[in-house]
Amino acid sequence: MVGEHHQNSITKKIREGISIILTPIVYLSHIPFATFDSLANNLQDRAQLINENATLRASVMLLQGRLQRLEALQTENKELRSLLQSSPVTHHIKVLLADVISLQLNPYSQEIMLNKGNKSGVFVGQAVLDAYGIMGQVIEVSPYMSRVLLISDPKSGIPIQNSRTGLHGILNGQEKTGLLNWSNVSPNADVKVGDKLFSSGLGGHYPVGYPVGEVVRVNKHTADQFLEIDVAPSAKINSSEQVLLVWSVE
């Protein structure tokens, strides 16, 4: 136990071996949930499916429209940067869709399991997103499974930047509330409720410029040296069934 607490390489190998042995068991335990989901899909009636199809088409149109503008802005940004003779920021990323395995064994930590492992190129420290923002990072990989530490876990910290003021900071997970905690902000800093926070990419784990959360509460105690700021995560941390694994390509 002490060895593992100090990140011994032998215990790392033992853990990897155990998770390889356990992979089929975990996949088996996922089967009932997966069949229930597919049953629910099959039992939908025609009108409902047509309706859903229409809304999906509409949302694809909207997103395509926004993407066109984004591409134009991207080229403009590149030109402006070359005019300023500053180094271009690379935003090329590769993504992979992974399913969340519906197995929550440890009720006291905020972790999820994914059905992709290092056979698909997943690595420890990789960022995991959903459609709305950053969810967490990979902390353990075996050939066909990986474990993700969510940003709402108290062990997790994520470097962020306020989109309105550019203020940097680190968000930590909080116990029980499901909110994030922005600590060590000086009392005269400009932070308001509703500020959107993006990942700053400092530290190298998380990619730059993805939404992380929104400020929901700013507590100013005159006695305290720092502000107490609560942030609601943008990602749907507890209800996502599919997530994106991100590689940044140079």
Binding site: M1, H5, R15, I18, I21, L22, I25, V26, L105, N106
Partner: peptide
């Protein structure tokens, strides 16, 4: 117990 540790991601041996 060791298998449970591996599955839960708790400290190995707990």
């Amino acid at each position: 117990g060791l298998f449970l540790d591996g599955l839960q991601g708790t400290l190995l041996g707990e």
